[in-house]
Nucleic acid binder design. Structure first.
Lengths: 64, 64
DNA sequence: CCATAAAGTAAAGTAGACTTTACTTAAAGT
DNA sequence: ACTTTAAGTAAAGTCTACTTTACTTTATGG
């Protein structure tokens, strides 16, 4: 699973900690997701989509 | 988290077991998701979206 | 150089997604 | 009534998402 979080953060000049706070998760969780260590839960994916006003598919891409 | 799996199944005349097989999960998992016992993982949501040729948001709705 | 902020990483723990086995209930046909 | 199929449910186990704490690495600016 790929994702565009790093770019979306960069566009807004947000740190991982900033994004973590807005999504109400730990900074390590953002880091792990950005690094592809694990996939976010569906509720977290929805939260990110709401935050960025994008569709889930525009943030996360299933690579298969 | 609500979802339209039951309706999408009905439109295709699929049982929970049919859908489970197509999504490569157990029948109990489909049952639990339909009944709202837990949310699917993001990869499973993507799989369902691919199967039904719909967007994730058209199948699963975050209720908040 | 040195300080500071951001990112990376790791271990240990908790919660939730999912499995298998197995039993129960509901609906439908014969 | 009896059988069969689908749906519902529950317990115990595994795996993964996520937390907290804490330490290391990588910029960047002074």
């Amino acid at each position: 699973m790929k994702n565009r979080l790093k770019v979306l953060r960069a566009e807004r000049d947000w740190t991982q900690a900033d994004l973590a706070e807005r999504l109400d998760v730990s900074r390590q969780t953002i880091n792990a997701i950005e690094k592809g260590k694990f996939d976010p839960s569906l509720p977290l994916a929805f939260k990110a989509a709401r935050l960025f006003k994008l569709r889930i598919e525009e943030i996360f891409q299933d690579d298969e």
